[in-house]
């Protein structure tokens, strides 16, 4: 296999990417209010809280890499993934992506409960950017994996939640992505299914050119990934081979734990003194 000129080029490149979230205190900044503000010549009240979810992120992700993203809740891990999936656009900076992105972030997002299982497979495939002709070839594989062939004509609203999750998972993992995004909580369905799901994800990982995983399960990150990116308060705190990144992250969390434990102990000292 020739490396090709693309081998040297990163599949994903973040250049000084920052993302500002504006959480609107009252989501409906009403027409009435803005009209009144205009008439009364008063300054528009600060209707929003600004919040930089990501600040100056510079990253290059190369072909063949398996990247695990670590960090506390709200550190910007999922935001990073959503930027890659194009749900958000950078407020500043630029993001370059080469190739198809398959997001295993929200599965079954495009499902229409009124439509049959088969129609939903086609619709979901279309939403992932797969041509209908290719999708028709994948339908068999999806039925085989989920065992839902006999329910193909049943509207989705009559599916059990387990069946629903299974179908969503099967569609999302039937793709052949260049870039695969995985957000933790993939634990869908019953026990037997979970085993098969793991196997299926493993195979999917193998055929993707680049995998980015967000997870709190450090063990599986260590197993699956080659590189770790530790996000802290919207910034990249550490970007290194996975074991290094994990060590740095663990040292940090332990330090915090120790501090917390100490803080918890102190009042006791005060009491006993």
């Amino acid at each position: 296999m020739l490396p090709g000129p693309s081998a040297a080029e990163p599949l994903v490149e973040f250049r000084d990417v920052s993302l500002k979230f504006v959480s609107y205190r009252d989501k409906q900044y009403s027409l009435k209010r803005s009209a009144l503000d205009l008439i009364l010549r008063r300054d528009a009240p600060p209707v929003s809280d600004e919040f930089w979810a990501l600040t100056d992120v510079n990253l290059k992700m190369m072909k063949g890499e398996r990247i695990g993203i670590l960090g506390f809740n709200g550190a910007g891990k999922s935001t990073l993934l959503r930027l890659l999936a194009r749900i958000y656009t950078p407020t500043r900076g630029q993001l370059a992506v080469r190739g198809d992105v398959a997001p295993l972030i929200e599965m079954g997002a495009g499902f229409n409960p009124e439509m049959s299982g088969h129609d939903n497979i086609m619709l979901n495939g279309a939403m992932l950017g797969i041509r209908p002709r290719e999708m028709r070839k994948k339908v068999e594989g999806i039925y085989e994996f989920t065992g839902l062939r006999e329910f193909a004509d049943l509207p989705l609203k009559y599916y059990s939640s387990g069946m629903y999750a299974r179908l969503a998972f099967a569609i999302a993992t039937e793709v052949d992505p260049e870039i695969l995004l995985i957000d933790e909580s993939l634990g869908a369905g019953d026990v037997i299914f979970v085993e098969r799901a793991k196997e299926r994800i493993a195979r999917l990982l193998e055929r993707s050119n680049l995998v980015v995983i967000v997870s709190h399960d450090l063990g599986s990150l260590h197993r699956m990934c080659t590189r770790g990116i530790w996000m802290h308060e919207g910034r990249v705190r550490c970007d290194a081979p996975i074991s290094e990144a994990l060590t740095a992250y663990l040292t940090f969390t332990q330090a915090i734990d120790a501090k917390a434990a100490e803080a918890a102990r102190r009042p006791e000292y005060a009491e006993s003194a």
């Binding site: 296999m1 090709g4 000129p5 693309s6 080029e9 072909k63 063949g64 370059a96 992506v97 080469r98 190739g99 198809d100 052949d176 260049e178 193998e206 055929r207 993707s208 050119n209």
Partner: peptide, 11 residues
């Protein structure tokens, strides 16, 4: 690891 034959252009 599948190498795609076509170089996907950057977006």
């Amino acid at each position: 690891v599948r190498t795609s034959h076509s170089i996907p252009h950057a977006e």
